[in-house]
Amino acid sequence: MLKIENLHVKINETDEEVIKGLNLTIPDGEVHVIMGPNGTGKSTLSQTIMGSPKYSITEGTISFDGKELNNMATDERARLGLFIGMQYPTEISGIKNVDFIHAAMNAVADKPVSVLDFMKRLDYVMNFLDIDESYTDRYLNEGFSGGEKKRNEILQMMMIQPNLAILDEIDSGLDIDALKVVSKGINHMRDNHFSSLIITHYNRILRYVKPDVVHVMMGGRVVTSGDYHLAEQLEQNGYAQLRDQLGIDVKLVDE
């Protein structure tokens, strides 16, 4: 279970506080969605859960399975079972996709994964996600299209098999087929030991991945939560109306 209490986060470079007293709990086995206007701190939240050196927690706690994460190194968090699918996956020249994924699996597993087992599983997952073979020998994300990068994040998730996957705008830039494939990947992971935090701007992924809870984030906090219908409501009425309904004082980017 992921538990976030009264979280305050600042950006190291600008010293600006972006997350301002956020609370969130994701029990095992559940899929939660966060929606919210641009610049409200969704990516900041996901990177902070993963321990990005760009952000600092100034107050509050994050814990996973009862262990406090605040001062834990990023790689240690990953070995606890956390995974992040990034909004903008990093390109790394010189490291082959296949070598990277094998290294990641070995890092997270209790004992090394043999080349044979690894290749078998890779074959299966690539087939499942309809990913072209040529992906494996290319350098990590280098020259990948936006959609290819997102597919690659899901490929990694399915190989590593984390307990909690934070997926930041995994659906952005995906064509219709890719969206189905990516959703299929997430649904394949769903079981009692897997939970997910999906950050999205659109309802369409929620047609394929049924969320347990939908949260709305504004001004660095979760301002309301509900079920799938909350997302539909938002799509119809927009953030300004919800804000005014809730009577909160935040400025939206395009105002």
Binding site: A78, I84, I92, S93, G94, A103, A107
Partner: peptide, 23 residues
Amino acid sequence: YYLKTRGIDAKTARFLLTRGFLT
């Protein structure tokens, strides 16, 4: 950071990137 988010420890990550620089 990207390598570390996949559980790869700092030392190995640095090595992979260093080798990758020449590869």
